[in-house]
Simulated assay, not measured.
Amino acid sequence: MPPDRGDEQEGPESAVPAGDPDEAVRLFHHYRRLMAQILGYEEELPEPASEEDLSAVEEELGVALPPDLRALYGIADGDGGLVNPLFDRQEWLPLAEIGDLDDEWLEIAQEWQREPWRRTVFDTQPPNTVRRSPLRPGWIRFAFDTGGNWLAVDMDPGPNGRPGQVIAVGVDYTEGPTYVTDSVTTFLRRLVEALERGDHRRHDKSLWIDADLPDLPGEHTGYSDGRPSLTRAGQAGPRVQEVRVSAVEDCAFLAAVPDVCSLVLSSKGSPDLTPLGDRPVEYLELDVESADLTAPARNRELRSLSVTCARPVELAPLRAVPNLWALDIAAASVADIATVTELNGLRYLEVTQEQWRELSELGGLPPLAVVGVHPHRPERDRPVPTSWVTTDGKPPSSTA
Score class of each variant (00 low, 15 high):
H203P: 00
R298D: 06
V16R: 15
G170N: 00
T120L: 10
L207S: 00
S183W: 11
E58P: 11
Q9T: 08
D53I: 03
D215Q: 12
R131F: 04
E193H: 03
F144P: 02
A168D: 05
V192T: 08
I329C: 05
H200K: 05
T120V: 15
S304L: 03
V63I: 09
G222Y: 10
C309I: 02
L293K: 03
D145T: 08
D156H: 10
P17A: 09
I209L: 02
N323A: 14
Q9W: 13
R227A: 09
L263G: 06
T390I: 14
D182K: 13
G237Q: 04
E13D: 14
Q355K: 01
I209D: 01
Q113D: 08
V121T: 10
L86K: 03
L69M: 09
E350F: 01
L276Q: 02
D79W: 06
R136Y: 02
A143G: 09
T185S: 15
S290M: 00
K268D: 11
C251A: 12
E282K: 12
L72H: 09
T308H: 13
I98V: 12
R190W: 01
Y41E: 11
T178S: 10
V153A: 08
G158R: 03
D103H: 08
V57M: 14
R189S: 07
E59L: 08
S267W: 06
D287I: 07
